[in-house]
Design a protein around this nucleic acid. Structure first.
Lengths: 307, 307
DNA sequence: GTCAACTATTTGTCTAGGACAACTCGGGCA
DNA sequence: TGCCCGAGTTGTCCTAGACAAATAGTTGAC
């Protein structure tokens, strides 16, 4: 077991805030699960505060993934690790592990930063930027995230990967200079969503499509997004959500933002946190595939061609 | 009043989750402020849930800024908008504003992203990377931060500035390929320190000095930093602290990290959060001036030259 | 068998008020 | 000045109850 904690000595414990951050489950949810399902059942520290183990966090993450897949808390909390593992791996095994991804992962784990960079640069040159983003960056980033969840990749290794990939994408983006009849696209994420890679992927895709991107980085409050959209007179606003982002909060915020934007402004939301949403949301484009964004840009251009 | 809501019709109201997202103040904090200071005092919706107005959110943001400047909640919550505004503008004006900086600031405020980028690029080419970082990026970033504190620059404008500058620096860094007798330097920040610009400035300075930087991005836990230092066999570890980082926590973390690193590894800490520390810390280099890092690299090289 | 409508159960998030550790500030002392 | 201690402040945790929204299950009509 990767996260074995039989070391007897001072096992690291996490307070409820840390668990909220790590799992994306709110403090309220954690407490009410404990009350109802008796899991997680953390020990208490000297102050009577909950103290969670890494094992509990790992199981919570597993449960979160199953919830995202449509399972219900009452049915799966309480199952032991083996059952959960079986559930989670069952519908995942549709993809045979890709050879090139495995190579990259190996480089990440062996700290060969320069080598990794070289390989990825070559892949980018070979595939072209858009194909590189869709076929390499996206699946690789997912694979790194999953390996990290399984404890196969350390935090610092994942950090270095992210940093390296950001540099690579930013570099490629700067080299392009959009012009012409381009829609103006605002790119950002909501507070508590610090992941920038997804946004950079979109920016890369769109810049190739000759759109004019205005990247605000991550964690912009809804009201600020609305102001920025007005100030920059953008045609589209695109938000990114990682899988840890709570679905209900994403929906609330999107509705809020939709009401603050002019009707003529297109509002798009994408990322793993969006992919699982079933419902239709009025006036909001849910982006499942990266290519969809490009399509929207082309569509916009067709509708706004002045010829 | 800036955010007058005399439109009579359905004023948009925000629930407590939305306010948490927009202001960064936790639900607990919002409730306890209401109990203790009677502000914010939201109306209640049909379910008895708190419903905040945009005016209240604006005031909360203002208060948040003042807290970041070192004011205390009990002293300032309860003051009316005018008093708050006066507080926020007060403690400026010690420096005569530099002409070029003022020009950049004006571009930030008028959302001329492309123009700003062009100006900065030119400055970089004119000054050279190191001088650009020390004489332009550092003071400009400080000026943007201060203008934001005073409310002269909106959050989204500051975001765009940061994003643009990151792109610029990253681009310049990638263009350089260090080699030779280079010290290996690990660059990162501690959890709760999300600012990356300072790290990029250091990386730019050091890469020009021909050091081999290993950037981990921001928010790496202490133990992970120690592991990374070992895995990458680094000669130096450099951490960045912004002014908002609590001094005592910085010192604790630095001491802990020092104890986890081999004695032969140099540990450096810099940034506005470090500049105010008076005390000497054994085995830890406090970096006040960016140039100091370059000096340390040269020193290292002198000590490790194999000739 | 399929679909719609209705009811039951599940589930997340809100509420209130209490407690307390960690932090800040000011005064007193070396 | 520098350091320590006590008083006051402040954010985050706690318990336990309530309820709206979402989902599952049941019934009945076609």
């Amino acid at each position: 077991m990767a996260h074995d904690t039989k070391d007897g000595a001072a096992t690291i414990l996490f307070n409820i805030s840390a668990v909220e951050r790590e799992t994306g489950l709110s403090k309220d949810t954690l407490r009410v699960w404990e009350r109802r399902y008796d899991f997680p059942h953390p020990v208490r520290d000297d102050n009577g505060d909950r103290a969670y183990t890494t094992g509990q966090i790992a199981k919570l993450r597993l449960i979160k993934r199953l919830l995202d897949q449509g399972h219900r808390p009452g049915k799966i909390i309480g199952l032991d690790d083996e059952h959960l593992e079986r559930l989670v791996t069952e519908p995942a095994g549709d993809q045979p592990p890709r050879q090139d991804i495995a190579v990259y992962i190996r480089l990440v784990r062996s700290h060969q930063a320069l080598e990794l960079r070289r390989h990825l640069s070559q892949a980018m040159a070979r595939q072209g930027l858009q194909k590189f983003v869709v076929d390499t960056v996206a699946p690789l980033t997912r694979a790194v995230g999953e390996a990290w969840m399984r404890g196969e990749i350390a935090v610092f290794e994942e950090h270095l990967y992210t940093e390296l990939m950001e540099g690579l994408l930013r570099n490629a983006i700067t080299a392009l200079q959009p012009q012409g009849n381009a829609p103006r696209v605002l790119l950002t994420s909501l507070p508590n969503e610090p992941h920038n890679l997804g946004l950079l992927m979109v920016e890369a895709m769109l810049t190739v499509e000759n759109a004019l991107c205005i990247p605000l980085g991550t964690e912009t409050p809804v009201t600020e997004i609305a102001q920025a959209a007005q100030a920059h007179r953008v045609d589209m606003v695109a938000l990114s959500f990682s899988s840890a982002y709570p679905e209900s909060k994403a929906i609330d915020a999107l509705r809020e933002l939709r009401s603050l934007l002019p009707d003529s402004t297109l509002l798009c939301a994408g990322g793993a946190g969006i992919a699982r949403i079933r419902r239709r949301l009025d006036g909001i484009q849910l982006i499942i595939e990266l290519e969809k964004m490009c399509e929207l840009v082309r569509q916009w251009r067709a509708e706004h061609s002045s010829y």
